[in-house]
Amino acid sequence: MIRICYFARLAEELGCREEELDSGFDTVRDLVEMLKQRGEPWQSTLSDGKLMVALNHTMGSLDSQPADGDEIAFFPPVTGG
């Protein structure tokens, strides 16, 4: 299993803060493509070119390779400080 978390604008648009899915994605890109196939709002929200990704609390990219037990987070560009 992998845990997937969504934050801020993404969580609001998707109406989802976290979920668990069976692992088996070669890359985060594959995972995103699968999520987009759910249709709207997933399709357009996850198509944002500025989407940021973290794996186990460390910044990653669409090329990152998730492993079983990982926590993968999607969020918009950060705006703290």
Partner: peptide
């Protein structure tokens, strides 16, 4: 501060 602004996962509404 410059790194916090672009790397730390905070979001303002």
């Amino acid at each position: 501060m410059d790194y916090l602004k672009t790397q730390a996962p905070f979001w303002k509404k």
